[in-house]
């Protein structure tokens, strides 16, 4: 979706401000939110792409005005309500009132913590051979799905070069909408700065994205 989360190339947000000796969490609740998202994901309530999609669908003014973990909280609430794990009325009273909905992997407990400390594996068996190889020129499609995609707007319709093949991986555009993993070949595609930003761009800059095969066509 062409949401406000897709920030590459936007102007006006000001300088980057790094906080010296930044703590892991600024408030205790931030850690609770992070842990709840990880736990409910691991228990099978949603996948990581769905989780991202719920943050992206927050209204733009809410997205921009909310702190990072506040966005995680709002996205988590919406996600869990839509999937039927909690109800809006439970959220407003702060207590369980309805029977639990079974989780795909059961309750998240102490025994499950170590499992989520290792990153998941997203590579899957390919259904077909890769269409592109390193060195190939490719054009990103001019596509604007209203649902989740990982092709940033600033790269759409531009010509780049395939630098690496990254295997065949879960396709976020499908997974986010719970349409299955639909594995697709993934490529690192590099663009010249001028191709993305025009002739005034810094000539020393190159930008790459990881692009799934359905995002790419022959120029």
């Amino acid at each position: 979706m062409n949401g406000v989360h897709d920030m590459g190339g936007m102007d006006g947000f000001g300088k980057v401000e790094a906080e010296p000796n930044e703590p892991t969490f600024h408030e205790k609740w931030e850690g609770r939110v992070l842990a709840m998202v990880r736990a409910m994901g691991a228990a099978g309530a949603f996948n990581i792409d769905t989780s991202r999609f719920y943050r992206e669908t927050l209204p733009p003014h809410v997205y921009l005005a909310s702190s990072y973990y506040r966005k995680w909280l709002l996205g988590l609430e919406d996600n869990l309500v839509d999937k039927g794990f909690v109800s809006a009325s439970e959220l407003s009273t702060g207590h369980a009132k309805e029977p639990a909905k079974p989780l795909k992997h059961g309750k998240f407990g102490l025994k499950d913590v170590e499992r989520i400390m290792v990153r998941g594996r997203f590579e899957r068996a390919p259904q077909a051979s890769a269409r592109f190889k390193p060195g190939d020129r490719v054009r990103t499609k001019n596509m604007h799905p209203a649902t989740h995609t990982r092709l940033p707007r600033y790269t759409r319709g531009h010509v780049g070069v395939v630098e690496r093949i990254l295997g065949c991986q879960v396709f976020p555009d499908s997974a986010a909408m719970e349409l299955g993993e639909n594995p697709q070949w993934l490529y690192n595609v590099v663009f010249d700065g001028a191709e993305l930003w025009g002739p005034d761009a810094d000539p020393t800059v190159k930008v790459s994205i990881d692009a799934f095969e359905p995002y790419l066509e022959i120029p």
Binding site: A35, M40, H95, F108
Partner: peptide, 21 residues
């Protein structure tokens, strides 16, 4: 509120959340 609900419904063990943090 959310953590209370998730705990009461048996979805998560709050002690496991502590360990993640």
């Amino acid at each position: 509120a959310l953590e209370t609900i998730l705990t009461e419904k048996g979805y998560v063990d709050p002690a496991a959340l502590d360990v993640i943090i």
